[in-house]
Design a binder for these strands. Structure first.
Lengths: 224, 224
DNA sequence: GTCCATCTGTCAGGTTCATGTAAGCCCGAG
DNA sequence: CTCGGGCTTACATGAACCTGACAGATGGAC
């Protein structure tokens, strides 16, 4: 399995490469956004490890470009900046995970393998669809890179539909996901949440649709 | 996907049916070997769950008869008798698996799905034809890898035609597959479904055709 | 504490849509 | 050409679904 390391600090990049090699991964190293763009277009990598502070620009621009092209390549962002704002920026731009320097090699490998192993988007920290990004940890929603607030219940519905995007999610599953085992609902609560979610997504200009499959459930997909 | 439950204990059979329903399978229930024979001959089931202690004879006789006719229907034997000898008898008679009462519903579903998924059987998890993919578990249709929604009845027709792609499926079989034992149709319902299915497949750009064989039934094949 | 805003679950009325039936046309076989 | 099966469209029906409204719950500001 081949990885792309985008990092301008030569010592660090070699260290990472050798650590990954020990874990059984081959890797290519580039040191600028320009080289990164080229490499990604020419080679099919299993994942990218991306540093943000690069000599010729911000690594996030590479990431955003990838996502705009609907490229699902898993990306692990790696940077010295560890503040909350940077973390949010990374995820908002479409990163799958985020690691602040200094870090332990084991953690890098563990997180990398987590994003490689995840089936579809079932386990990812961050979920994407069209211009919609959802951070599963902070439960934050971004549309066109702008944070949007929607209420808790609707967020839960969004999450489960997003995790199974392009697949039908039975209404019962949605209900279970929201209420867990204990709470029972004696009404059409799920329908109401879906209705409210649709409305809010539309208001915020999200380019996604929630299809209704009568007698079964719902399916979220990209618009058109 | 439709299953046949052969079980004379009404409570148990209902329990099993509801458990299977939760797992996404429809089922018909019969309570004797005579009814079982009739049902199997009239309807095309995905699998049979067979109890051995029946009021009018041994369930194994039904199974042996099926196998003598080279009928590949997957059979899961379910019985109070849990001894090794019984297990051997069941398997020797052509059962695909064996489950002793009392059992956990999860185990029944797991074993059932194991035999349904088994290669070489009529049934796999997903069926392909040209640019059309059908997932038998979620009953989802993909054309050119994009999920497509068509309604329940049309999906059932598609499923049986796909399972026997390249072969003629008698109209009566299609009808049985959709309605099972109980429902009787007093019209040209099947023709209507086929018509609707053709239309929708065309709209979605599926490269498949449904040929009509006059006086017999239908056959699905790749376009051109 | 009070006030206000928002969130939540329920309900009811209206709407949409899958479904089965029927009717008329089409078309292939003979 | 005739006959009969097949195709397609139209339509009625009821179930499934949508959505606006409402009232209680919650929680933050003061």
């Amino acid at each position: 399995m081949r990885l792309l390391i985008v990092e301008d600090n030569v010592e660090l990049s070699k260290l990472v490469a050798s650590g990954l090699s020990a874990a059984g991964y081959e890797s290519d190293i580039v040191g600028s956004t320009a080289e990164a763009r080229e490499a990604v277009h020419n080679v099919s990598y299993a994942a990218m490890i991306l540093d943000l502070g690069l000599p010729d620009g911000d690594g996030l621009s590479v990431l955003r470009e990838l996502r705009r092209q609907m490229e699902p390549l898993p990306v692990l962002v790696l940077t010295a900046r560890g503040g909350v704002q940077d973390r949010v920026n990374g995820l908002r731009s479409g990163a799958d995970d985020y690691l602040a320097k200094p870090f332990a090699m084991e953690e890098l490998v563990a997180r990398l393998e987590a994003i490689l192993r995840r089936p579809g988007q079932l386990l990812g920290r961050s979920l994407h669809l069209a211009n919609l990004v959802y951070d599963t940890e902070s439960r934050q929603i971004f549309i066109d890179d702008k944070p949007r607030i929607i209420s808790s219940r609707e967020t839960s519905v969004l999450e489960i539909l997003l995790r199974r995007q392009g697949r039908v999610v039975p209404k019962k599953n949605v209900e279970d996901h929201i209420f867990g085992l204990d709470g029972e609902v004696a009404s059409n609560a799920v329908e109401v949440y879906v209705s409210r979610l649709r409305k809010q997504l539309a208001e915020h200009g999200a380019k996604v649709v929630i299809h209704t499959i009568r007698g079964v459930g719902y399916m979220m997909a990209e618009e058109k």
